[in-house]
Simulated scan of single mutants.
Amino acid sequence: MKRLAHLHLIAAGLVAAAPAVAQQATHLRDLDAANRATLSKDELQQLLPGATISRVTNRGNRNIWKNEPGGGFVASSDNRDRGSTMPSTARGQWSISDDGRYCVRIEWRSVEPEDWCRFIVRSGDAYYGTRSDQNPDERVYRLDITK
Rank of each mutant, 00 (worst) to 15 (best):
R3W: 05
R3N: 14
L4K: 13
L4S: 11
H8T: 13
I10S: 10
I10G: 13
A11L: 07
A11T: 08
G13W: 00
G13H: 03
G13I: 00
L14A: 06
L14I: 02
A17W: 10
A18C: 12
V21I: 14
Q24I: 14
Q24P: 04
A25L: 10
T26W: 10
H27W: 08
H27C: 12
H27F: 09
L28I: 05
L28K: 06
L28V: 05
D30V: 01
D30H: 13
L31I: 00
D32G: 04
D32Y: 01
A33S: 14
A33T: 11
A34F: 02
N35G: 12
R36G: 02
R36V: 01
R36D: 07
L39R: 02
D42C: 00
D42L: 06
E43R: 07
E43T: 05
L44V: 01
Q45E: 12
Q45P: 01
L47S: 04
L47P: 00
L48G: 01
P49V: 01
P49I: 01
G50W: 05
T52P: 04
T52V: 06
I53F: 11
S54C: 13
R55V: 06
V56Y: 07
N58R: 15
N58A: 15
N58E: 15
R59M: 02
G60I: 06
N61V: 04
R62P: 04
N63Y: 11
N63W: 12
N63S: 12
I64P: 00
I64N: 10
W65A: 08
K66I: 07
K66L: 02
E68A: 11
P69D: 12
G71K: 14
G72Q: 11
V74G: 07
D78N: 14
N79C: 07
N79R: 09
N79I: 02
R80H: 15
R80M: 03
R80N: 09
D81M: 08
T85F: 10
P87C: 09
S88D: 09
T89R: 10
T89C: 08
A90M: 03
G92N: 03
G92I: 03
W94G: 05
W94V: 09
W94S: 05
S95K: 12
S97F: 05
S97N: 11
D98I: 02
G100I: 02
Y102C: 10
Y102V: 06
C103S: 12
V104A: 05
V104D: 08
R105E: 14
I106E: 11
I106T: 14
E107I: 02
E107M: 09
R109V: 09
V111P: 00
E112M: 14
P113D: 14
E114L: 12
D115S: 08
W116V: 10
I120T: 07
V121S: 03
V121L: 08
S123D: 03
D125R: 06
D125G: 07
A126S: 12
A126K: 03
Y127E: 04
G129M: 08
T130C: 15
R131P: 01
D133M: 04
Q134H: 10
Q134G: 01
P136Y: 02
D137W: 08
V140H: 04
R142T: 06
L143S: 13
T146S: 10
K147L: 02
